[in-house]
Design a protein around this nucleic acid. Structure first.
Length: 662
RNA sequence: GCUGCUGUAGCUCAGUGGUAGAGCGCGUCAUUGGUAAUGACGAGGUCGGGAGUUCAAUCCUCCCCAGCAGCACCA
């Protein structure tokens, strides 16, 4: 007999080999029906898996949504693989986990067939539904490793065989049978049968290439993605959320609102239109005030530097493939012969600002009294990114960072990092973001000694602990292997208005570059010392941050950032004169305002400026003209407010004031 | 860079082996209207680029470029 303790503290003596399903049935028929899995000593298990020892048991039902979704998605993934193999014999399976909103499975299509495409998805979905309707039992079986490898080899499943062969020798591995005709190697757990899934609660969404084991050098598989839920209602709600997110897409809004465009002649670089650049200018002004107030000095450094400079910094060796290089010579102007000789010295567009800032630091002799020296630049950088990586404003080839480097003594690091935490906190809150902070630790390939890495990681950790931000509430987490090659990184991950996260801000504590570029200062003792260099950014890049803001606000910018803050719209042409007076007065008060005196009905104007997301529409007809008033209709509300022109100016001026100046 | 898909008017898209169409937008005219689309008329495209097949290519084939979805990458 074994002793099973239930969550309410009660205990039962049952025979060894009893399943959680048996216990659920013993408790009551309702629970027996509702239970889909079990937590045995905290571990999620199959409901049909016999219990072998004393344990704490909690039965899992669909009301335990996190567990239930995880189980359902994992099962959907298996059923997807089974369906693909049923429809396309010769397909090899590899593996398929659950994801945040569903599942995927990586498969290798039969050689003669070629990769799967979207056109294959409807048939696969139908086959999956058939498997669910068949209510096939999902049965766990333990196999010896060698027997399993042989099974995979006999079945022509070379990927599975490779995987199994790398698991520890002699280990017993679990497989799951779907009915008696399909099997996959899996740690589990699974639902008791395929019929426990809702056949209407999933949808295959796309198919794409993915490398076997995530390695570019390996064969590329077909990854079939699906979204999976507990019922159709949840699925529909999810699909609706996707639609809503698509409506916020910064690429679509950027076009609709005439903010910027991209075109193939300069792919990966942004053409900012007047409306978009107004947002940029506001952000630039905001950031300048912030860094001026925090004791930074702004600089501007060269766009092109000699390749030798990049060799010395280490970037030439490691990142040359992503740098734009330029021959330092006059192009051939003869009609014959190549434009470039090929034996000129190389220069490169700067991919980052750090070395240039070190060169500024190195001018003259620095004393410990000069530290911390905080050098800021709106630094325009170019990186030749892999073409498949480019994405709207989010990943571009030319971008401008709000980049600064703080040169300081070792004993100033924690204080500087803490001050940066405070600055970043203020900025993100003023834009309405919440955030979490993560610490990215040393990567496998890195410069610098382990002792320096220990120090650097501890300093960053310390600073966040002292700032009181290293708590679960702030999403504190350490990410092994994610740091840069020269320094660990603190990363700020913003959460936007619809719950998505974006990594933007960072601060990195670097002892490598000051050494490679020979930066030093004279200490109190009269000797030369190496400063530590803190690399830091809050927006990350203006391009990407504006892209995030567009999606965060869904294009409805707060007034201070809105390209057009107000439109004065006339009802009849008789009010044109008054409308121009109002517009002039608002302009004089610093409001970005336009007059709309076109020969259109007011309905048309209201609709057009609402669609354009103008925060305030000032409607004027003869009534307003005679009384010296305006009727204000604000974006997002249906009603109008009648007020005097002076009141309107006061209100708009207040709203148009950046948050740091209020 | 890899896999798949896509590229037709300013935008969103339809369409065909015999050199093209809609809606919105744009222009002109009429209309002067009170809070999410007034009506009529009109202009606008060598169908991403190049080569090939064909009597004939926007449509078929090949190459290139860009975009999209993922993967890989992201100092």
């Amino acid at each position: 007999m074994i002793r099973v303790t239930l969550p309410d503290g009660s205990a039962r003596e049952v025979a060894r080999g009893t399943t959680p399903a048996d216990i659920a049935a013993a408790i009551g028929p309702g629970l027996a029906k509702a239970a889909i899995a079990a937590r045995v000593d905290g571990e999620l298990r199959d409901i049909m898996r016999p219990m072998e020892a004393d344990a704490e048991l909690a039965l899992v039902t669909s009301r335990d949504e996190t567990d239930a979704l995880e189980l359902a998605r994992h099962d959907f993934a298996h059923i997807l693989a089974e369906a693909v193999q049923a429809l396309f014999p010769g397909t090899q399976i590899t593996f398929g986990p659950s994801t945040d909103d569903g599942f995927y499975y990586d498969v290798m299509a039969p050689a003669k067939r070629g990769p799967f495409t979207m056109d294959d998805l409807p048939a696969i979905e139908e086959q999956m539904r058939a498997i669910i309707r068949a209510d096939k039992p999902l049965r766990r079986e333990v196999m010896a490793r060698d027997a399993l490898i042989a099974t995979w080899q006999n079945a022509g499943e070379s990927f599975k065989a490779e995987w199994a062969a790398e698991l520890p020798e002699g280990e017993e591995l679990s497989v799951y049978w779907s009915g008696n005709d399909w099997m996959d190697m899996c740690r589990g757990p699974h639902l008791a049968s395929t019929g426990k899934l809702d056949a209407a609660a999933f949808k295959l969404t796309r198919v794409a290439g993915a490398y076997w084991r995530g390695d570019q050098n390996n064969p590329q598989l077909s990854r079939i993605y699906g979204t999976g839920w507990l019922n159709k209602k949840q699925l529909d709600a999810h699909l609706l959320r996707l639609e809503e997110a698509a409506k916020r897409d910064h690429r679509r809004l950027g076009q609709d609102m005439d903010l910027f465009h991209l075109q193939q002649e300069a792919h990966g670089s942004v053409f900012w239109h007047p409306n978009g650049y107004l947002i940029w200018r506001e952000l630039e002004g905001y950031m300048r005030r912030a860094i001026d107030g925090a004791g930074y000095k702004e600089v501007k450094t060269p766009q092109v530097m000699d390749a030798r400079q990049w060799e010395q910094s280490g970037h030439w060796g490691k990142y040359r493939a992503n740098m734009f290089v330029i021959p330092d010579e006059v192009p051939n102007v003869d009609d014959e012969g190549p434009v470039i000789s090929g034996d000129a010295d190389w220069m490169a567009l700067k991919p980052m600002n750090c070395p240039a800032h070190v060169l500024i630091f190195r001018q003259g002799i620095k004393s410990y009294r000069d530290l911390p020296l905080r050098i800021y630049e709106n630094g325009c950088c170019h990186r030749n990114e892999p073409h498949g990586a480019l994405h709207g404003l989010m990943r571009v080839r030319q971008f401008t960072q709000d980049d600064a480097h703080i040169f300081c003594r070792e004993d100033q690091i924690v204080e500087e990092v803490q001050a940066f935490c405070a600055l970043a906190d203020r900025v993100y809150k003023e834009f309405g973001f919440t955030y979490s902070i993560k610490l990215a630790l040393r990567p496998d390939q890195r410069f610098g000694s382990d002792a320096d890495w220990d120090k650097a990681e501890n300093e960053l950790r310390d600073a966040v602990v002292r700032a009181g931000l290293a708590t679960a509430e702030f999403g504190w987490e350490e990410l092994p292997g994610e740091g840069a090659f020269y320094a660990p990184k603190l990363e700020w991950h913003l959460t936007d208005a619809i719950g998505r996260t974006w990594q933007v801000g960072t601060i990195q504590s670097d002892r490598v570059l000051p050494q490679r570029l020979d930066a030093s200062y004279v200490g109190e003792d009269g000797a030369r010392h190496r400063p530590v260099m803190l690399h830091r950014a809050i927006f990350g890049s203006y391009e990407r941050f504006i892209g995030i803001l567009i999606e965060h606000y869904a294009g409805r910018f707060p007034v201070w950032l809105a390209p057009v803050q107000a439109v004065v719209a006339t009802i009849t042409s008789e009010a044109d004169g008054y409308a121009h007076d109002v517009t002039a007065k608002l302009k004089a008060a610093g409001i970005r305002v336009e007059a709309d005196t076109r020969n259109e009905k007011i309905n048309y104007k209201v609709r057009e400026h609402s669609v354009a997301k103008v925060p305030h529409l000032l409607v004027v007809g003869m009534r307003e003209a005679e009384e010296g008033k305006v009727a204000i209709r604000s974006l997002g509300s249906d009603g109008q407010r009648i007020m005097t022109l002076d009141e309107a100016i006061a209100m708009l001026s207040h709203e148009a004031t950046p948050p740091d100046l209020r």
